[in-house]
Design a protein around this nucleic acid. Structure first.
Lengths: 271, 271
DNA sequence: TTGACATGTTCCATTATTTGAAACATTGTC
DNA sequence: GACAATGTTTCAAATAATGGAACATGTCAA
């Protein structure tokens, strides 16, 4: 981690993230304490963000909060993300069929981002909510995605994992994870064996846009009070076929657009 | 409104909005055609946004889309917006009790922003989804909020209304709307008489944090095939009491935070 | 009341970033 | 092969961001 910023926009985003991560109304001085920016600079950044309605200022309590404009923008991002809209009916079906929690996730900057979810009829709540992020190395959806990524991208993603031990079963290092990813690639499904949250297990399948391209993953999550890892296999067949259906639906959805067919582009991030 | 921008961040946000409003993958040249920015400037703005993952670049199709980082940020905004989290159980209750669609909205920059919703059991879909925006002057929630705003703020908001005629019953000018707002203030509830969408009607109640401060509004929306404006009154009592409950819940929720009791702050916008 | 302290806001000369016309590069088309 | 369209880079000039320090405001203790 050297300098992910550089431009003014980057600095503004750093501050925005900072406020978002506080998870509660935050004072200017609190931000200042946590920030590398000098007082005057931070002040103007916060002011700019507030003007843009990316932050909200509560002048009763003199605190800042992430602004609602973000919710508005996110709707556009969500609606246009190929997966979310396409997958919705399939998630409904899965949730309805089994009554368990269903999650749809994509990888975003090395982390699992939950794009959509369906609640279990049993109303216990996993942490996951739309828009939330979780580590990739210790979630079912995360491992399902990692397993089917192109080796180069996967390595990049693996280097972003923190390998914090949330529970006794959490992977503590890349080695054991890599081994499991091989197994996942062979079997086609990934399990979360209480690796992130004690008492929560899941089975996840990757969503492929084609043989080599993973878009995201679906999972069925439940609690150890109702299922064991073994009994999750009851869901496997339907889960896999649903993931496959979502994949092809996404492929079709993407098709209308190209205008210039075929391209010989070989990887390469921009800048 | 001449130039809401000025800073670099403002310009970047303009571009981000532009991409979001396209509602589909968009090429650089399309953005350029629609933009006041010179080519090189726009190019660098788009590049910056992409680096920040506020935009996603599909180098297959050479198109830009709003980035998933927005979804992540929006979750923070949503979870911390006093209303959304506080109101959730009440929305559940309303939806369960009547089986009709329930909407929770706030005013954001003169527009109605849907913060949360519950689906009707009848599965007809109104336009509203979380994160979507709608005009204030022709929706139940919008009018409920406008009616209870402080006069100065209301005037400001009214000047932001476009008064487009979506249907025959849409208000075409401020005059008739103002009259209705008086009536709403007197009665405590607002109706949408197919003003935004033909066939969709709703009854809405404001959510007040105290006698003079409106936070948002809740509504029950249905279709003309199941209800008339008159039969919506069946919901009025429960809707009003729910709105009141959400209001006091929000008040309590805000209380825990201060740390330094009492404050003699008298208004004053910043900047 | 007074003074010390913490927090938040503004100034302004300096510095660094952004700007954009024009040149360049790449790809698709006739 | 020349042409057109789209996307990318360059570089001096214009602009915006910077941050140390001064200022303002409110808080608290003596």
């Amino acid at each position: 981690m050297s300098e992910p910023d550089g431009g003014t926009v980057g600095k503004a985003m750093t501050v925005l993230d900072q406020v978002a991560n506080f998870g509660r109304p935050v004072r200017f001085s609190e931000l200042l304490k946590d920030s590398d920016f000098p007082k005057a600079t931070l002040f103007r950044l916060v002011q700019t963000l507030t003007q843009q309605r990316l932050l909200t200022y509560d002048n009763q309590a003199q605190t800042y909060l992430p602004g609602l404009r973000l919710v508005q923008l996110a709707h556009a991002a969500w609606a246009q993300s190929s997966l979310a809209t396409v997958a919705a009916p399939y998630l409904d079906e899965l949730a309805h069929k089994f009554g368990e929690a269903v999650h749809l996730a994509q990888l975003e900057n090395g982390q699992v981002l939950f794009i959509d979810k369906r609640q279990s009829v049993y109303r216990f709540d996993t942490l996951a909510q739309t828009g939330q992020v979780a580590p990739a190395y210790c979630t079912g959806v995360g491992k399902a995605i990692l397993a089917f990524m192109a080796p180069m991208e996967r390595d990049h993603a693996l280097r972003q994992q923190a390998f914090v031990g949330y529970t006794p079963t959490t992977h503590g290092a890349p080695d054991s994870l890599l081994q499991e990813l091989d197994a996942i690639r062979a079997s086609g499904v990934a399990y979360d064996r209480e690796e992130h949250e004690r008492g929560i297990i899941s089975i996840a399948a990757p969503i492929m846009s084609d043989d080599t391209n993973v878009l995201g993953a679906v999972s069925i999550a439940t609690s150890t009070s109702r299922h064991t890892i073994e009994s999750l296999d009851r869901f496997e067949a339907v889960l896999r076929s649903t993931a496959a259906q979502i994949g092809s639906a996404a492929r079709v959805w993407r098709a209308p657009m190209p205008a210039n067919p075929s391209y010989g582009n070989s990887g390469g991030e921009n800048s």
